[in-house]
Design a protein around this nucleic acid. Structure first.
Lengths: 108, 108
DNA sequence: TCCATGATTCGATAAATGTGGAAATATCGA
DNA sequence: TCGATATTTCCACATTTATCGAATCATGGA
């Protein structure tokens, strides 16, 4: 992941509704959630959500697939991994500020 | 770190010049860099850089101290750690997308 | 085919962000 | 004190971003 792509991903997550939507999608797992379900959960109009989902999609953070009349969105874990890797490698002093991994957190 | 603070930090890094500035500060280490040195390195006017540094400062990602006529900025690793921790804990599926730590990367 | 449903696109508008010159502030050396 | 240096603040302006109703598109059932 290069700097430009990183900025796109950071911008995508740097917004209240989009960060909330992404968290819901992460929580939902690979099955994802329909756009309508997300709009309900977030309490925002469908057109507003559509705008935000387009940004997350453009940043490569979510994938979408049509199922009947619904469009199901799902978090792209690889993209998130790429973002975290970039930040850890380029914005940390040799890993000095790298957070513990899940395994390490559980062990502590 | 809560969602609001996370969004502030993500917004601060989601901009070409600010991400570049932060990377330079991380590279510079605890000694940091003077505002003028950053402006030269980035090739932007002092007033523009000052605006960006204020955002990074507001997000808690950098600290500043005056040394004679210069104001020295330095990356705040703890804040960056907090951001990465939040993203790993809230935006990853149980650590599924957590990147390897530096030690793990070196070992692999 | 016709209608209902789920979602996106369009368009207008409001708000926030980025830019950079000029003026103001702080510090140092002579 | 005076002038030079380093930086920030102020200001006007252009650009981008966010909001949301209305119109449009796609799908499935009767």
């Amino acid at each position: 992941m290069d700097a430009t792509q990183t900025i796109r991903a950071l911008s995508a997550l740097a917004q209240e509704h989009r960060l909330a939507a992404f968290r819901l999608l992460v929580e939902a797992g690979p099955d994802g959630l329909a756009a309508g379900a997300l709009a309900d959960a977030l309490g925002i109009p469908a057109s507003s959500l559509s705008f935000h989902l387009a940004q997350l999609s453009n940043a490569g953070l979510v994938s979408q697939r049509r199922v009947s009349r619904s469009i199901i969105y799902a978090a792209d874990y690889a993209a998130m991994n790429g973002l975290l890797s970039y930040l850890t490698e380029n914005c940390c002093a040799g890993g000095l500020c790298a957070p513990a991994t899940t395994a390490e957190r559980i062990a502590s």
